[in-house]
């Protein structure tokens, strides 16, 4: 296992109380595995992604642990996380367009970044990787605004993976792109994995069909909890959790993003995460709900590599 997440809880502090955005999520990631993370808006995907690399000021680590390559990550302590960042865990941000300092030439920025982490810049390696993503060498002598949007994103992808991290987190990096560019990004990410630039990857997206092209495993979250996790084809073809089933069936055709469509099959909204009621969080909207659902359904491995948190599926 590259990554082991055990009962991870991360809350947002707000004036009204804690928002329990990530409430006891456990899963593992093998070497070379790409995990697609899916779920309705607000279910905690970004929160999970951030929890693995850098909590923002309002987030607090409430419980659970993250183990990467056998080391427990001090995710709650910003300074102590620094040695792991970039080298063990890295991220491709959603905001690639503005991720680079606008007033530094890209090459110089990369060099300064690496120096600050006490890493030597291997220029040949960098050039090779640029070539791999079809960027000319001379981008290093340019300022970010001189690059097109797609070029900036590829540049950021190269920077993020330069130190061959064990885990790469990519949060909605394709949502602003057109279909053909999305495909290219997905292909590039696969290439990074195949060449060993990254060991494993968590790919967060709203587009299940895109996830399906890239991910080995898909994990579906609902309201801060894991709903279902299984090999990609199983999630798409034979989901067991009622929520996943509705999610998949509400996709009329490949390529349609579920965020663009209201989930007509599922009336109602996710519960508030401020003080969620005990029991299955999907209960209010679940067509199969019964008395037992007033208790929290534990995630159960119903078959090999297929975990479902639902009383009906177990």
């Amino acid at each position: 296992m590259t990554l082991e997440v055990d009962d991870l809880r991360v809350y947002y502090r707000t004036l009204k109380g804690d928002v329990q955005a990530l409430d006891g999520v456990s899963f593992g990631l093998r070497d070379g595995e790409i995990l697609g993370l899916a779920g309705e808006s607000g279910c905690g995907k970004t929160t999970l992604g951030k929890a693995l690399i850098r909590l923002d000021g309002r987030m607090k680590h409430v419980g659970g642990s993250v183990t990467l390559d056998g080391q427990v990550l001090p995710i709650g302590e910003d300074a102590k996380m620094n040695p792991y960042r970039f080298k063990q865990v890295s991220l491709i941000p959603q905001y690639s367009m503005s991720a680079m300092n606008p007033t530094r030439k890209i090459g110089r920025m990369v060099r300064e970044l690496l120096e600050s982490r006490r890493e030597k810049l291997d220029l040949d390696e960098l050039h090779q990787r640029l070539e791999l993503v079809e960027l000319p060498k001379d981008v290093l002598g340019k300022y970010p605004i001189e690059l097109s949007g797609g070029m900036k994103q590829r540049m950021v992808m190269v920077i993020s993976t330069l130190l061959n991290p064990s885990l790469l987190i990519a949060d909605e990096i394709t949502s602003a792109l057109d279909v053909s560019t999305q495909k290219a990004v997905v292909t590039t990410l696969k290439g990074f994995r195949d060449r060993g630039f990254v060991k494993s990857m968590i790919f967060i997206t709203h587009d299940i069909s895109l996830t399906n092209q890239l991910a080995d495993t898909i994990m579906v979250m609902y309201a801060g909890k894991l709903a279902e996790k299984a090999p990609a084809s199983t999630v798409v073809n034979a989901p067991k959790h009622p929520y996943t089933q509705l999610l998949i069936s509400s996709l009329p055709e490949v390529g349609v993003r579920y965020a663009d469509k209201r989930l007509t099959g599922i009336p109602g909204n996710p519960p508030s995460l401020l003080k969620p009621e005990p029991g299955c969080r999907f209960r209010a909207r679940c067509p199969l709900a019964f008395e037992k659902c007033a208790e929290d359904p534990p995630p159960v491995e119903v078959e090999k590599d297929h975990v479902v948190a639902c009383w009906k599926a177990a």
Binding site: R54, F86, Y95, S98, R117, V156
Partner: peptide, 12 residues
């Protein structure tokens, strides 16, 4: 954004 990105990459 660039400050966030650099922090995420552990820049001092």
């Amino acid at each position: 954004d660039y400050a966030n990105y650099m922090s995420a990459l552990g820049a001092p």
